[in-house]
Design a protein around this nucleic acid. Structure first.
Length: 475
DNA sequence: TCCACTAACACGTTTGAATTGT
DNA sequence: AACAATTCAAACGTGTTAGTGG
C-alpha cells in the first residue's frame, strides 16, 4: 500500500477538464440525455465544484437537471440518481488548492435518490427538463431521512439512471441505462473551502441572495457578538425550525422535484459520459474502492476506474470492459476530446443490462405500504424473487402507484425496515433505530449491507460492483 | 495551533392555505 | 357553486461565523 506521502507526490487537483468540441449529449440506443444548465455546471467545474453536506441534509447547487429524449412515450420509466466516488482518496484544502490527504474512508451506506415522478411515461420525462431539486446530501451516516450520505472532503459525481419499468418492483427485470456528466463532479465539504465557489454560489443561487449585500453581513456579524436574549428565546419558539430534524418538513412539499415548467431546453452541455456497467451489480464491499484506486496516482486516469471499469451486467454475457478516458484524466485539462469517450465505448448492446435485485421503499407512502404489505420482506437468496432484494430507498414523493399493491419494505414506516437500514450486516454503520415514523419522500437505497452478491455475477466482474444502486440487504 | 465540523443566525425565496375576485 | 387570482405567514434554503472537539 502506498503511503500518503507517495500519494501526495506533489498532487493537487488540476483544473477541470475543459470540454472541447464535446457532444452536448449522449444517447444509449435511442435514449439521449443532456445536462441542463451545463454552462453553470461548467463554471463551477472550472473552479472545482464543492457541495456542502450537513447533518440535516443539504441540497446541491447547481442542482441536477437533465433533458431526456428518445424514450418510448407510452412506456414507463423510473429515474434514479446516486453518487459515486471519483477516486479512492480523501482531500484537504491547503492554501488555495486541493491536495490529497490520504486514502478515502470506507463509504457510508449507499443510497439512491428516486425522482418523485417515478414511474412516469416517457412522454412525461421528455416534455420538459427533469430536475432533482429535492435531492439532499448529508454527512450523517445515521441519517434517517433518506438523504444521500457522503463523506466530507471526498470527491463524487452523480450518476443518472433510467430504468424502463412500470413500477419499482419490476425494476430488477428492466433495462436500465446510466449517464454521467463530467462537469457535475464535486468535492463534498462541510464548509466552503474555495472562496471562488462561495461567490459563484451566492451569485447564482436565489436562496443565497441575502448574502450578496455586504452591509447585511456586517450587520449580522455585529448583532451576533451580543448574544441577543430575544434571539435566544426565539429559538425556543416551537414554530422555529428545528435545525436537526428540520429537513423532514421539506419532504412534505408535494411540489418538489417535478419537471420544470416552461423552461427553455438548453443543449449545450459538455461531454457526456456514459456508464455501461450495472449499478446493480453485485456488491462486495467498499474497500475495493480504496484498493483499486489506492494504487494509482490521482493524477492519472486510474482513479476514475473506480467507477468506470468494467461492470457486471447481469443478463448480458457479452459485457465488455469500458473505461472513461477523459473523465479519468481530470488532471490533464487538455484531454478533452469527447469523441474519444464515445469512441471507446464498447458495443452498444453493453449499454443495456438487466436490473436485478431491486427493492423499493417509497417513503411518503411507507405507512400505506406497511399496511398493505406489512413488515420488511426478508428474502431468500439473492437473484430469486423480487422480494429477495429488499433495499432501502428514500423516495421523494414517489407516486403511490409505485408501490402499487406489491409488498414493500419500508425503512421508515416499519421499524424493522430501519434495522436493515443500518444493516445488520453493516459493521461500520449501524444507525440507531428510528424513534418515530417519518414521511420520507426520497427513495434511497442503502448499500450498507454489501456483503451480499447476487447470482448474476459475471465472470469478470470488477470492483465496480461496489457501487450498486440497490442493496441486497435484508436478511 | 490547526483542522474539520456543528449549531445558531439572519434573511430572501418558496410554499400553500386562506382570502378575495370573477 | 366553482374556479381563478391574490395574499401573506410559515417554512425552507442559504452562506456566515463563533464555538467545539480531536
Amino acid at each position: 500500500m502506498q503511503s500518503i506521502r507517495d500519494l501526495k507526490h506533489n498532487f493537487s487537483i488540476p483544473p477541470p477538464t475543459t470540454v472541447a468540441g464535446a457532444p452536448d449529449s449522449y444517447h444509449h440506443g435511442n435514449i439521449r440525455m443532456t445536462l441542463e444548465d451545463a454552462e453553470l455546471w461548467k463554471s463551477f467545474h472550472e473552479i472545482g465544484t464543492e457541495m456542502i453536506i450537513t447533518k440535516p441534509g443539504r441540497r446541491m447547487f447547481p442542482h441536477c437537471k437533465i433533458n431526456l429524449s428518445g424514450l418510448v412515450p407510452y412506456a414507463k420509466y423510473i429515474l434514479l440518481v446516486d453518487m459515486v466516488p471519483e477516486d479512492g482518496f480523501r482531500y484537504k484544502w491547503n492554501k488555495d488548492k486541493w491536495e490529497l490527504a490520504g486514502k478515502a474512508e470506507p463509504h457510508p451506506p449507499y443510497r439512491t435518490y428516486l425522482h418523485p415522478d417515478s414511474p412516469a411515461p416517457g412522454s412525461h420525462w421528455m416534455k420538459q427538463p427533469v430536475s432533482f431539486l429535492k435531492l439532499k446530501l448529508t454527512n450523517n451516516a445515521l441519517d434517517q431521512h433518506g438523504h444521500i450520505i457522503l463523506h466530507s472532503m471526498h470527491r463524487y459525481h452523480p450518476r443518472f439512471h433510467i430504468v424502463q419499468a412500470d413500477d419499482l418492483y419490476s425494476v430488477r427485470w428492466s433495462v436500465f441505462q446510466t449517464f454521467t456528466f463530467p462537469e457535475t463532479s464535486f468535492t463534498a465539504v462541510t464548509a466552503y473551502q474555495n472562496t471562488k465557489i462561495t461567490k459563484l454560489k451566492i451569485d447564482n443561487n436565489p436562496f443565497a441572495k441575502g448574502f450578496r449585500d455586504e452591509g447585511t453581513n456586517s450587520k449580522r456579524r455585529a448583532s451576533r457578538g451580543t448574544a441577543d436574549p430575544e434571539r435566544l428565546s426565539k429559538k425556543l419558539n416551537p414554530t422555529t425550525k428545528d435545525s436537526d430534524q428540520g429537513s423532514s418538513p421539506d419532504l412534505q412539499h408535494s411540489s418538489c422535484d417535478g419537471l420544470d415548467e416552461g423552461r427553455a431546453v438548453r443543449k449545450d452541455s459538455g461531454e457526456v459520459k456514459e456508464e455501461r456497467y450495472s449499478p446493480w451489480g453485485c456488491v462486495s464491499d467498499r474497500e475495493s474502492g480504496g484498493n483499486v484506486m489506492g494504487q494509482d496516482s490521482p493524477a492519472g486516469s486510474e482513479p476514475r476506474d473506480v467507477y468506470s471499469t468494467e461492470q457486471l451486467v447481469p443478463g448480458h454475457s457479452t459485457y465488455q470492459p469500458y473505461r472513461f478516458h477523459e473523465y479519468g484524466k481530470s488532471p490533464s485539462p487538455s484531454s478533452s476530446s469527447a469523441p474519444g469517450v464515445l469512441g471507446s465505448s464498447a458495443s452498444r448492446s453493453g449499454f443495456e443490462s438487466r436490473v436485478p435485485d431491486v427493492a423499493t421503499v417509497p417513503e411518503h407512502e411507507s405507512k400505506a405500504a406497511a399496511h398493505e404489505s406489512g413488515p420488511a420482506l426478508c428474502p431468500p437468496p439473492p437473484a430469486a424473487a423480487p422480494q429477495d432484494y429488499a433495499g432501502v430507498l428514500n423516495m421523494a414523493q414517489a407516486k403511490p402507484a409505485i408501490l402499487g399493491h406489491h409488498p414493500l419494505y419500508t425503512p421508515y414506516g416499519a421499524e424493522q425496515a430501519l434495522g436493515q437500514w443500518g444493516g445488520a450486516s453493516s459493521a461500520q454503520y449501524t444507525p440507531a433505530p428510528p424513534t418515530h415514523h417519518h414521511h420520507h419522500h426520497h427513495l434511497a437505497t442503502d448499500y450498507s449491507t454489501q456483503a451480499v452478491h447476487h447470482s448474476y455475477h459475471h465472470g469478470n466482474v470488477t470492483d465496480w460492483s461496489q457501487y450498486p444502486l440497490f442493496s441486497y440487504s435484508c436478511w
